[in-house]
């Protein structure tokens, strides 16, 4: 393992995620976020995947469905987060058939958290879980590196997020309309893409409400102004 053996935390804590990667591993350099709004939640992400300075994939989809209206944003190791998301997707599918009712966002968060916590020394996974269900409406949970579970009004993650803490704190409003929330996510991710070398490409979003999951795509060549799907 390449985690270093000093046992002490890197003082430059904001780059913790990158220090954890194993050598040569594909990194979701990443800017990801999820926000609650009046009718549900919105997940958003850039599309850049890097190995070092090389862009291994410029149109990555970091927004992953684990159940009908429960999705996650993945950051850290692409392999680790894909493996974890696959396990949770299986578990939630099983839950739905066994219990005859859809799982809640809490159910998903609990399963994600247990995997991330129990395997903390083997995983490099920074996840944001966002979902909508009848009982709880739209909810956002953040699971950072060590496998702790944080419920939040909105969450940001990945290397690019460090550049937009100020932007998000200043512009965040509770209970926004959908269009307003989409603009908030887009504005934040545009800044992250602008300042973070490990983030870039297109902006993807997923809007989760009672109506189901709705994908958005915004491209850099139209300055992220036009919605393409």
């Amino acid at each position: 393992m390449e985690f270093g053996n000093s046992g002490s935390l890197s003082e430059d804590g904001i780059h913790l995620d990158m220090d954890r990667l194993k050598k040569g591993e594909v990194n979701l350099g990443t800017s990801i976020m999820a926000v609650t709004f009046k009718d549900g939640v919105i997940l958003g992400a850039d599309s850049r995947t890097t190995t070092g300075a090389y862009i291994a994939n410029r149109v990555t989809d970091k927004l992953t469905q684990v159940h009908d209206t429960i999705w996650c944003c993945r950051s850290g190791s692409a392999a680790d987060t894909q493996a974890v998301a696959d396990i949770v997707q299986y578990q939630l599918g099983l839950f739905a058939t066994m219990n005859g009712k859809p799982p809640t966002t809490q159910t998903a968060a609990a399963i994600f958290q247990e995997i991330c916590y129990a395997n903390k020394d083997r995983l490099t996974a920074g996840l944001i879980i966002a979902g909508w269900d009848e009982r709880h409406g739209g909810q956002v949970y953040s699971i950072p590196l060590g496998g702790s579970l944080h419920k939040q009004p909105y969450a940001i993650g990945g290397s690019g997020s460090t550049y937009i803490y100020g932007f998000c704190d200043a512009h965040w409003k509770e209970g926004m309309e959908e269009a307003e929330a989409v603009e908030f996510v887009k504005g934040a991710l545009k800044e992250a893409i602008k300042w973070d070398g490990s983030s870039g490409g297109v902006i993807r979003m997923v809007v989760l409400t009672a109506k189901g999951a709705d994908r958005h795509l915004y491209l850099p060549d139209t300055d992220y102004k036009v919605r393409h799907t």
């Binding site: 609650t36 709004f37 009046k38 009718d39 549900g40 939640v41 968060a109 909508w132 009848e134 009982r135 709880h136 409406g137 739209g138 909810q139 956002v140 949970y141 953040s142 702790s148 579970l149 944080h150 419920k151 939040q152 009004p153 509770e174 209970g175 409400t209 009672a210």
Partner: peptide, 13 residues
């Protein structure tokens, strides 16, 4: 879990 959602309550219930 720690933390909380928006103080206005979750939307879309």
């Amino acid at each position: 879990e720690v933390g909380s959602g928006p103080s206005c309550g979750a939307g879309g219930k």
